Simulated assay, not measured.
Amino acid sequence: MPEPQIIAVVTTLASRDDALRIAHALVERRLAACVQLSSIDSVYRWQGALQHEPELRLTVKTLRSRYAAVEAAIRELHPYELPQVVALALDPVLPAYAQWVAQQCDDG
Rank of each mutant, 00 (worst) to 15 (best):
L56D: 02
R64G: 13
T11N: 08
L37V: 14
E55F: 03
P92Y: 04
E28N: 12
E3Q: 15
Q5S: 14
L90I: 15
S38V: 03
R30W: 01
I40S: 05
V60C: 13
E81Q: 15
V27G: 05
V93P: 03
D41C: 08
R57E: 15
L56M: 02
Q103R: 10
A19I: 02
G108K: 01
L77A: 11
L37Y: 07
A98E: 08
R16L: 15
I74E: 02
T59Q: 14
T59F: 09
Q104T: 01
V70G: 08
V10E: 06
L31M: 04
L82H: 13
T59I: 11
V85Q: 09
L13C: 09
P83D: 07
H78L: 12
A102H: 10
L50I: 06
I74N: 00
H52E: 13
A32L: 04
D91H: 14
T12V: 12
A89E: 15
A49D: 07
A23V: 06
R64N: 10
T12F: 00
E76D: 15
A14P: 02
P4A: 10
I7R: 09
L31K: 05
E71N: 06
E71I: 09
P79V: 10
G48C: 03
T62K: 03
S39C: 06
Q51W: 02
L56T: 06
I7A: 10
S38R: 06
V43M: 11
G108C: 05
H24V: 01
I40F: 07
S39P: 10
Q51F: 04
P95V: 00
P92L: 10
D41P: 00
Y80H: 14
